[in-house]
């Protein structure tokens, strides 16, 4: 197993390098960090040249890339091309915000998705099963941005009006109450609720379908029939014997999803003004700020690689027949 992990880690290094070269090349060819200044009539050609020199943008593309890479491998992430603010500080803040949102939505989705999937499978073709199936298809079909905007209006406007509330139960945008300073847990949770629901609904639909299908397959297997024939109680048969095997496919999917959350949720973060990794990436790509974009890519790819590895390891843990050499 250890050899497997080391090999996977080593393979990921060239992968990260290729990704960083690709992102840098695309950004270098399609964006210009000085574009905004270019259309400012008060900025002269001489200003532009001086500015590009100050940022090192007058060097060749490879020279810029290798200068960045040299610093990056030494742990010097540098500062943004525009703001002079530390790259690591910006990414750390965005990552924490994305993970708070992502993990909350993910946990709700996993818990409810597995539960709904199991019940729907055990009670196949029941009213619950039909409702769960229809609900999952509706959830998968609803565009994220539309659902998010409807939730904002529902909680921010209509429930407040209908129930004569002094303020919304759940806030509709941002991470904190405007004007507030410091950390208040309840306030944070009330801001977190709606974006987490939007994320959870999408994932929940997927997980419940996965779990239902997987559970149905397991429920009809010989070993479960044997367990029942031994006289085990139905709950024990389902929970201890059925679910453990049925969880294998969803575990892989969930681990991959969890790794992907590090990249943020572009639509959800945009609509709820959640300053996470997705929002950061959109901003820096638009600006052509490769000083942030490249570490962003390295980090999110590292997350994906690590969580894929975790998925493989969990696979082996859940299914003793699987062994990695």
């Amino acid at each position: 197993m250890l050899r497997f992990i080391v090999r996977r880690a080593l393979i990921s290094i060239p992968l990260l390098l290729v990704a960083s070269v690709l992102v840098f090349t695309v950004m270098h060819l399609t964006t210009d960090p000085t574009a905004g200044l270019r259309v400012n009539p008060r900025i002269s050609a001489a200003d532009m040249q001086r500015y590009r020199h100050d940022l090192g943008l007058d060097k060749s593309g490879p020279a810029q890339y290798f200068a960045w890479l040299g610093n990056f491998v030494q742990g010097k992430w540098g500062t943004s091309l525009f703001t002079n603010i530390s790259v690591s500080a910006q990414i750390r803040e965005a990552l924490v915000n994305s993970m708070v949102l992502g993990v909350t939505g993910f946990a709700i989705a996993l818990l409810l998705g597995v539960t709904i999937g199991v019940i729907a499978a055990v009670r196949q073709y029941s009213v619950f099963d039909y409702l769960a199936t229809s609900g999952a298809f509706v959830a998968l079909s609803i565009p994220v941005f539309w659902f998010a905007l409807i939730l904002q209006l529902l909680f921010g406007l209509y429930l407040v009006r209908w129930l004569h509330l002094p303020e919304p139960i759940f806030f509709t945008a941002g991470m904190v109450q405007p004007g507030s300073q410091g950390f208040e847990l309840v306030d944070r949770l009330r801001h977190l609720a709606l974006p987490a629901i939007v994320l959870a609904v999408q994932l929940l639909a997927v997980y419940s379908r996965y779990m239902r299908a997987s559970m149905l397959e397991v429920l009809n297997s010989d070993y479960l029939r044997t367990a029942r024939a031994k006289g085990l109680r139905e709950r024990r048969v389902i929970v201890h014997h059925g679910m453990r095997n049925a969880l294998i496919p969803i575990t892989t999917q969930a681990a991959i999803d969890l790794g992907g959350l590090a990249g943020g949720l572009i639509a959800t973060e945009a609509i709820f003004q959640w300053p996470g990794m997705g929002a950061l990436f959109v901003r820096v790509m638009g600006d052509g700020d490769y000083a942030i974009a490249l570490p962003w890519v390295m980090l999110t790819m590292a997350f994906v690689i690590v969580f894929n590895l975790v998925a493989d390891i969990l696979y082996a843990v859940l299914d003793p027949r699987i062994r990695y050499a």
Partner: peptide
Amino acid sequence: DQVTFVPRTDQSTEMNSLLTGEA
């Protein structure tokens, strides 16, 4: 006493913020 600007960079969200009275 105090004015707080909040980013509402998606125009639909911005309009919702206004309609809900948040902004």
